[in-house]
Amino acid sequence: MCILFVANQQRKDMPLIIAANRDEFYRRPTLPSHFWSDAPDLLAGKDLEAGGSWMGVTRQGRIAAITNVRAANAQRDNAKSRGELVTQSLCDPSHQTLSARLRQSREKYQGYNLLFGDINALQVYNNIEDRLQEVSPGIHGLSNATLNAPWPKVTRGMQSLSEYCQHSECIVPQDLFALLRNDEQADDDRLPDTGISKEWEKRLSSIFIQSPDYGTRASTIILVNQDLQLYWHERQFSPEGAILSEVSERFQLTGE
């Protein structure tokens, strides 16, 4: 997962909205989102290389998603797969216990942001800064730096989501997919400097990324309405940006 946007408590009819893109190498084997046979309440895609996921929910209302942090000076040898943190957090109902474990294990992983919690209390943990932040009511964006870092694609998506929440009559997944499909790249003088080449900084500066080997492989929408019904919508993409598959699920949250 490379970028996600959250509208928390911005509409009475849809108190939680999450729109996210997963960017990854196309050669990495993946299963689209599904309810896992060994964890039947867990809905998530699956990384077949390491066994974890990049984003998921449970029928009880737990939510987790991960983004990589680009920190050239913080590379770690023999690092564990960050995707396992998503499944661990979805299976752990105790936020306090999980936060402590994340801090204890932070040096075992490459840089990451982990969004985790439930529909009423989401947090983001950044292992590079060892920082835990509440996702307060408002519009938020998370990419490969800290929460709400002013990268062009983050601010662009936050503004689009804010305007959409304010002016739309109702929330429609198709509109949120369009927000996530924005392929506008940042001007050269606004590119972040994360230790990679300027060519790659440019290529990665759009919300939706396309290249032959690496790009946006999936877009996922999570909507939770005022009646505590959760809607999950996912699209998987080819390197050319064509839709390969779609998954839609809807269920009533049961609580812990």
Score class of each variant (00 low, 15 high):
residue 7 A to D: 05
residue 10 Q to R: 03
residue 11 R to P: 15
residue 13 D to G: 02
residue 13 D to S: 04
residue 15 P to Y: 03
residue 16 L to H: 11
residue 17 I to D: 09
residue 23 D to R: 04
residue 26 Y to R: 04
residue 34 H to K: 00
residue 36 W to G: 07
residue 39 A to F: 08
residue 44 A to R: 02
residue 45 G to E: 04
residue 45 G to I: 06
residue 46 K to L: 04
residue 47 D to G: 10
residue 48 L to K: 01
residue 51 G to Q: 05
residue 54 W to F: 01
residue 56 G to Q: 08
residue 58 T to P: 10
residue 61 G to Y: 04
residue 61 G to C: 06
residue 65 A to Y: 12
residue 66 I to L: 10
residue 70 R to P: 05
residue 77 D to R: 11
residue 80 K to V: 00
residue 82 R to C: 03
residue 84 E to G: 00
residue 84 E to L: 01
residue 90 L to V: 03
residue 93 P to C: 12
residue 95 H to W: 11
residue 96 Q to Y: 10
residue 96 Q to E: 07
residue 98 L to Q: 11
residue 99 S to W: 00
residue 103 R to E: 14
residue 103 R to A: 15
residue 103 R to C: 10
residue 103 R to L: 15
residue 104 Q to H: 11
residue 106 R to A: 08
residue 117 G to D: 09
residue 118 D to S: 14
residue 122 L to I: 09
residue 128 I to P: 12
residue 128 I to K: 12
residue 129 E to C: 05
residue 131 R to K: 14
residue 134 E to S: 15
residue 135 V to R: 03
residue 137 P to M: 10
residue 138 G to P: 08
residue 147 L to Y: 13
residue 148 N to K: 05
residue 148 N to A: 01
residue 150 P to S: 07
residue 150 P to L: 04
residue 152 P to H: 03
residue 157 G to T: 06
residue 158 M to Q: 13
residue 159 Q to C: 14
residue 159 Q to R: 14
residue 160 S to V: 13
residue 160 S to I: 14
residue 167 H to W: 13
residue 171 I to L: 14
residue 172 V to P: 14
residue 172 V to H: 13
residue 172 V to W: 13
residue 175 D to T: 12
residue 177 F to A: 02
residue 177 F to V: 06
residue 179 L to V: 08
residue 184 E to F: 13
residue 186 A to L: 04
residue 186 A to H: 05
residue 193 D to W: 11
residue 195 G to P: 02
residue 198 K to Q: 09
residue 199 E to Q: 12
residue 201 E to A: 03
residue 201 E to V: 05
residue 201 E to L: 02
residue 203 R to G: 09
residue 205 S to R: 06
residue 213 D to C: 00
residue 214 Y to L: 07
residue 215 G to F: 02
residue 215 G to L: 06
residue 215 G to N: 03
residue 216 T to C: 02
residue 218 A to V: 13
residue 218 A to T: 15
residue 221 I to C: 11
residue 223 L to I: 15
residue 224 V to R: 07
residue 224 V to C: 10
residue 228 L to R: 15
residue 233 H to Q: 14
residue 233 H to V: 14
residue 235 R to I: 01
residue 235 R to E: 09
residue 236 Q to Y: 00
residue 237 F to C: 01
residue 239 P to I: 05
residue 245 S to L: 02
residue 247 V to T: 10
residue 251 F to Q: 09
residue 252 Q to K: 15
residue 253 L to Q: 02
residue 253 L to W: 04
